[in-house]
Simulated assay, not measured.
Amino acid sequence: MGEVLVGTAIFACLAGASLVSLMVHERFPAHHLGDDTSAVVRLAANLFVVMSSLVLGLMINSAKNTFESINGNVHTFATDLILLDRTLRHYGPEADSARQSLTAYVQRVVETSTADSDTTVVPNRLSELLLNQVGDLMAGLTPTDARQNAAQQAATQQLQKLVEQRWILAEQSEGAIPTPLIVLLVAWLTLIFASFGFRAPRNGTVVFTCLISAALVAAAIYLIIDMDSPFSGPIQISPAPLQRALAELTTQ
């Protein structure tokens, strides 16, 4: 929802700047509408066009890296879940209660991995309790031979890695694009769109072009910001790895 509001605000700024400039430039004194003035306005607009292009490129690269990094971490997280379950199976029937808690945790994660959910693996109270219960049950196991002792130690290490990976995903879910950078980019684009209406003819074609251009630019920035937050919006990390992990855990 936050990304939608940002996109709407950007559209309002860009469309408003171009339309206001289109409506008021005829009221300027004659010496403000000369060719020399127009040349300076175009030069300033070109400067901001270049700077905006560079910033947009940096934002796209940052959002792409964030998305790919989190996507890789989700796959790793799903793999760690499967490996921990396999280790508990190797321990023996005594670890079935720990496996059931682990399956309940994964089920909880998958259930929150829907299109209307804000996050996928970001910690919440119930998920944390389920994962802590897995650790408590594992700690209560009493190995009877070297095989079970090795399995318990391996499972403890895998659970620790799983917890660490979970918190890494929680930290990454907030995005990496600084808000001041977005504000600065919108300010530059607002000046660029204001220059569109300067000395432009006041007709339907110009108004339509300004509105469509503002909508497309706002949509592009919205998608970049949305990609930087991969657990919400139309561009999301696929829950398929977690669903496959749940299928593996429930297979007897």
Rank of each mutant, 00 (worst) to 15 (best):
M1R: 08
E3C: 05
V4F: 11
L5W: 09
T8I: 14
A9H: 11
I10Y: 07
F11E: 08
F11T: 05
F11Y: 13
A12T: 10
L14P: 04
S18N: 05
L19N: 00
V20I: 11
M23I: 06
V24I: 05
V24M: 05
H25R: 08
F28W: 02
F28P: 03
A30V: 01
A30C: 09
L33E: 10
D35F: 10
S38I: 04
S38T: 07
S38N: 07
S38F: 07
V40Q: 07
V41E: 01
L43R: 07
N46T: 06
V49K: 05
V50K: 10
M51N: 00
V55Q: 02
V55N: 03
L56Q: 01
G57D: 02
L58F: 02
L58D: 04
I60E: 00
I60G: 08
N61H: 01
N61I: 07
T66F: 04
F67M: 06
S69E: 00
I70G: 05
I70W: 03
N71R: 09
N73A: 01
V74K: 05
A78Y: 02
T79Q: 06
T79S: 00
D85S: 09
R86P: 08
T87I: 11
T87M: 08
T87S: 09
R89G: 10
G92N: 12
S97T: 12
R99V: 07
S101C: 14
T103Q: 08
A104H: 13
Y105A: 11
Q107P: 11
R108P: 11
V110Y: 05
T112V: 13
T112F: 11
S113D: 10
T114L: 14
T114E: 11
S117M: 09
D118N: 13
D118E: 09
T120H: 04
N124G: 15
N124L: 13
R125A: 15
L126E: 15
E128Y: 14
L130D: 08
N132D: 15
V134L: 12
V134A: 06
G135W: 01
M138E: 05
A139N: 15
T142K: 15
P143D: 15
P143H: 10
T144G: 15
T144L: 14
R147C: 13
N149M: 15
L159T: 09
E164D: 03
R166C: 07
R166S: 08
R166H: 12
W167S: 13
W167D: 10
L169A: 01
L169R: 00
A170C: 03
A170E: 02
S173A: 03
G175S: 01
A176P: 07
L184P: 02
L184C: 07
L185W: 00
V186W: 09
L191C: 06
I192E: 02
S195K: 06
G197F: 01
G197L: 01
G197P: 06
R199H: 02
R202D: 12
R202E: 11
V207K: 04
F208W: 13
T209Q: 13
C210I: 08
L211I: 14
I212S: 10
S213R: 12
S213P: 01
A219K: 10
A220S: 13
A220I: 12
I224H: 04
M227P: 02
M227H: 00
D228T: 03
S229H: 12
P230W: 08
G233R: 04
I235A: 01
I237S: 03
S238T: 01
P239Y: 08
P239L: 04
P239V: 09
Q243V: 06
R244F: 06
L246M: 02
E248W: 00
L249C: 03
T250Q: 09
Q252W: 03
